[in-house]
Amino acid sequence: MSFGKMIKEALESLFRKPATLNYPVEKGKVPERVRGKLIFDPDKCIGCQLCVKDCPSEAIKINKVGDKYEAEIDLGKCIYCGQCVDSCVKKALAITNEFELAQLESSKLKVKLHGEPKKEP
């Protein structure tokens, strides 16, 4: 009858640093592949609306602005699955790992994506 099998582990934990991450003061490392906010390149978009058709939650809309297209995403509806990225024939959409997207007003969740500035080589 050995009571308290965990005594050794419990006493050792007493002197170790707690395993809690004090978010948001401490932020953990976010892996590269984590699916967060989308980015859109209007130069590549041809307006085929395949991404709109395949979105499971109807979160993305492609609007014609001038002679280019812009993407309008409802961040509240988006489930961050990345199916639109896979469906796009011209690879105009990509997914980043930015996930801290909470807002206090729901109207701020509807964002229009015009594209990222081109990175200098």
């Binding site: 419990a10 934990s13 007493l14 170790r16 707690p18 395993a19 809690t20």
Partner: peptide, 10 residues
């Protein structure tokens, strides 16, 4: 003490 033994902050 209970929390620290469970590896939490308390």
């Amino acid at each position: 003490v209970y929390a620290r033994m469970q590896n939490r902050v308390g």
